[in-house]
Design a protein around this nucleic acid. Structure first.
Lengths: 348, 348
DNA sequence: ATGAAAGCGCTAACAA
DNA sequence: TTGTTAGCGCTTTCAT
């Protein structure tokens, strides 16, 4: 139960008004400077004054005006998180929620407010650029940027403290937190091959992003000279329906396929449904693995072998990187790469 | 391609600094007042001055400081959207993304920034209350509040312009935008019954929220005296796994069940998987319907009959309500209830 | 049509 | 230890 009163102060004309430092000062019988010192936990305040001020704050229900403080401090204690995902797609991405939560947790500890900013239309991007440069935000976390992203450019132009989740190639030496998509893809493909498969294909998505192209590269790495380009099908999105479509094509082109690396769990789920509808038994006839370790993986039957993404940690680390930059600490010297273990289940 | 330069202004000591109205004024050879008038599109500015100022703005790369403007205007052109969902659960809710997008679209048109605020822990709620009262936000949209929610109380205490998505019973005459959960539940249950089912059960979730209890009430309405309490199973969440659990219990208790109203599509998907695993054929042996018309519905096999929620519209309408309140227009006289048509597919 | 000047609420430098 | 004062960058009277 919160006992806070947001009473404000009654003016001579009878209207209520939000209390200001001045009201507190008058009520406590001290100066505004002293009130400010208490507010900011600075030393050189007598116990007596501090007590009087605390009482006065409670009495008039004072809450500092952040805009005023921002104006003088040149900071806002708020950090933006931009997801540059087209349209409503970002809710299909199982990681974004966790990234958001991880970032929020880290910022919350440092008493920063997370502001989730949506870039849903060109107009949004414009407004966003203005917002970023308007000084309402001290730093920014950028998720799922592409190479050549206008948001990336705007942030660079503003040199706003920023951290990327993922690693587009054109962010210079900006901070980023990523996973080793290529290494993980290589590892899970190798394991899939080790289950005795000889005709392994891939449904590759989102090749315009580092995550997508890296997963494909890892797949190629793992197969080495056994790699057959015929067994790779490219689709636009990490989605269930693109998984279905990709699998249909692959099945047409190579009915003898006995292993599939799907670029995400959602893609794997779509592929699995198509395979099963075509009478294939998983994992007996075809082994299949995904990527993300999202809720899709457990909904599959049999449950999906996949790569676990530390999404919460990605968000948390990105937030911490921004906070560190804000404190003027070492700029993380580039980026951090987080572990993403393979989770082996029954689908392969 | 954006030609904006965020150059700022070079100081005597050589360091770059963000340009201010004063810099623009000097550059254009006018006063700050005139610059401000141009910035705010006010009349009584000569074409000559306006042209000089526009040029100066471009030259020095001026972007207004929102904090300063907020301080004097007492508003921020930003509106918060609070989702009070425990933990990471809010990304499981298929509607929240659309609500977010709808709200963003409406606010974007009015040149407001949407700030998505997360209430993930008690500490968050505290910080949130401070944030709301800190004047960084002009109004707020509140999603999935429960009765007695501390956020609701804080907002009421601040009398911040607010609109609820959904209709908790204790929000007084605050604005809200909702669907008629009870009516829709009644309608879809009636239709399910009309397919010739005689032993119809329900998996009821989230009874601590208006949406959950209303759906149950509608179910009871529809069945009238044919209602059998034995056929209702209560589970905590609108989730796939709670759907599975609920269906197992129901199947144990009433093996002759031939119709199921699941309180959400995710619940229905869980229930459907359990039914099929138990050898029931859908819709021949058991008819099943859901609620939400989310991506779950199409992922089911056979696809799910369900109630379409106009989630985007809910977000948009809530945003518009807040904007109207901000403009001092009629406070919407309580709430709006949006249509939610039944979508009939193959599962029943 | 425009300039000068007074604040919005807060912090910080300087005096005392 | 405390009070005084000068801004932060902007808008907005009130003169002119």
């Amino acid at each position: 139960m919160c006992s806070c009163t947001y009473d404000g102060v009654v003016e001579s004309n009878g209207r209520r008004r939000r209390a200001t430092v001045k009201d507190v000062a008058v009520e406590a019988g001290v100066s505004r400077g002293t009130v400010s010192r208490v507010l900011n936990g600075q030393p050189y305040v007598s116990d007596e004054a501090r007590k009087a001020i605390d009482a006065a704050i409670a009495k008039v229900g004072f809450v500092p005006n952040r805009a005023a403080r921002s104006l003088v401090m040149q900071n806002t204690q708020a950090i933006g998180l931009i997801v540059h995902e087209p349209h409503s797609l970002f809710f299909e991405d199982p990681n974004i929620g966790s990234i958001l939560l991880g970032a929020n947790a880290a910022l919350s500890e440092a008493d920063y407010q997370l502001s989730f900013l949506i870039a849903d239309s060109p107009r949004d991007i414009d407004r966003l650029a203005r917002y970023l440069s308007g000084g309402l935000i001290d730093g920014v976390i950028i998720v799922s940027a592409r190479v050549g992203d206008p948001i990336t450019r705007a942030v660079a132009a503003l040199d706003l403290p920023a951290a990327f989740v993922g690693h587009p190639r054109d962010i210079g030496d900006a901070a980023y937190v990523a996973i080793d998509n290529r290494g993980a893809a290589r590892e899970i493909t190798t394991r899939l091959a080790a289950t005795g498969r000889s005709r392994i294909g891939m449904i590759a998505s989102a090749l315009d992003r580092d995550s997508g192209s890296d997963r494909l590269a890892g797949f190629v790495d793992a197969l080495g000279n056994r790699f057959d380009p015929q067994l790779v099908e490219r689709v636009p999105l990490y989605s269930y329906s693109d998984g279905q479509a990709g699998m249909r094509t692959l099945l047409d082109r190579a009915p003898d396929i006995d292993g599939v690396f799907a670029s995400s769990d959602a893609v794997a789920a779509g592929a699995m449904d198509v395979l099963q509808a075509a009478g294939r038994v998983i994992p007996d006839d075809v082994g299949i693995v995904g990527f993300d370790d999202s809720s899709w993986a457990l909904r599959c039957d049999p449950p999906l072998s996949t790569v676990h993404q530390p999404a919460t940690e990605l968000g948390r680390a990105a937030a911490q990187s921004v906070l560190r930059q804000l404190r003027g600490e070492d700029p993380d010297s580039g980026g951090r790469v987080l572990e993403c273990p393979v989770v082996w289940r029954a689908s392969a």
